[in-house]
Design a protein around this nucleic acid. Structure first.
Length: 299
DNA sequence: CACCAGGGTACCT
DNA sequence: AGGTACCATGGT
């Protein structure tokens, strides 16, 4: 980096019901690292450090490098102004959701960049969250533009652009440990680069129409499309059904009869209400917490 | 060493 | 339409 250092910006956000650590590590975004009691990551082309004294503290502190005064991009990413209380009030008032909400107080939905979110979830299929983080990190290190960090003591990279990925070879991507997902990511990038599907245009569509567009992309089925609809476009009704959610629905709502994936999608489309996406994220995290405490033998 | 991981697709009844 | 093998790699 030969460019001059930008100035530091420090911002504090006043929040309620916002557990930063839980949110950043909940498997919706894959670029956050816990370091020195803070969370460091890259949003767009900006390096950011976020911190919160305790998980229920009412302040989130942010440090980033930028010449501009504006911090709207960060407020938006973190969804500081989202009204979770109202969303939670629309959940079904059953035992399952009550427990899930109680176990995940402060869990939020972020608002990510569509391309990075889409690419990350194409890489997510049948991978554990730790592995997804590793693969995404490799892709960024190798092909992303370097971004400025404080004193450039550490290195950070932005997520590579559509055109950058589109111009690579399949073996470049396979070298990032993504295996059979490499042609999916490559061909999706090429299709987007051709303009046949335009991610920006999806913002103006209905959830169903936007899903149809996303599912035209190779390696993108219903589940990955729903993740992007929820985590990047903010469609509150998008309800990704992955293995964890399928297991949760099966065990908690249909313990008697085996349901197919499609049946569970149809069920969840109406049962969890207009903010089903939020309900889904609570259920997902609740299941993961339960599994972890069971595995480690704690409480 | 099995078994599983925030699935999708092609190919089979 | 509805089921199933396969894809590549690493964590547990």
């Amino acid at each position: 980096m030969t460019t001059a250092q930008s100035s530091f910006r420090q911002v504090s956000y006043s929040v309620k019901d916002y557990n930063l650590g839980m949110t950043l590590s909940s498997g919706q975004a894959f670029r956050w690292q816990h370091r020195r009691s803070a969370w460091e990551g890259v949003i767009g082309q900006r390096w950011v450090r976020l911190s919160q004294q305790t998980p229920d503290a009412d302040v989130i502190d942010a440090v980033f490098l930028d010449e501009r005064e504006d911090d709207q991009w960060l407020r938006h990413y973190l969804q500081i102004d989202a009204d979770v209380v109202t969303a939670i009030a629309t959940f079904p008032r059953d035992d399952v959701m009550k427990k899930a909400v109680a176990a995940c107080t402060g869990l939020r939905l972020l608002r990510q960049d569509p391309w990075e979110c889409l690419a990350s979830f194409i890489l997510s299929s049948t991978k554990q969250i730790v592995q997804i983080q590793q693969i995404v990190a490799l892709v960024c290190e190798r092909f992303g533009k370097r971004v400025e960090t404080p004193n450039d003591v550490q290195v950070a990279h932005g997520f590579p652009s559509i055109d950058t990925i589109a111009r690579l070879d399949e073996c470049d991507l396979r070298a990032c440990k993504m295996g059979f997902r490499a042609p999916y990511l490559l061909n999706t990038a090429r299709l987007l680069a051709s303009g046949e599907v335009q991610l920006e245009l999806l913002r103006s569509l209905s959830c169903d129409k936007a899903r149809q567009q996303l599912m035209l992309l190779p390696g993108v089925g219903r589940k990955i499309a729903d993740c992007v609809l929820l985590f990047a476009y903010g469609f509150p009704e998008a309800f990704p059904v992955d293995v964890w959610i399928a297991r949760a629905l099966q065990q908690l709502y249909f313990p008697k009869r085996k349901k197919t994936l499609k049946q569970m999608q149809e069920f969840s489309a109406t049962f969890f209400g207009p903010h089903g996406g939020y309900a889904q994220q609570y259920l997902f995290h609740y299941m993961r917490i339960a599994q972890n405490s069971g595995r480690t033998g704690k409480k």
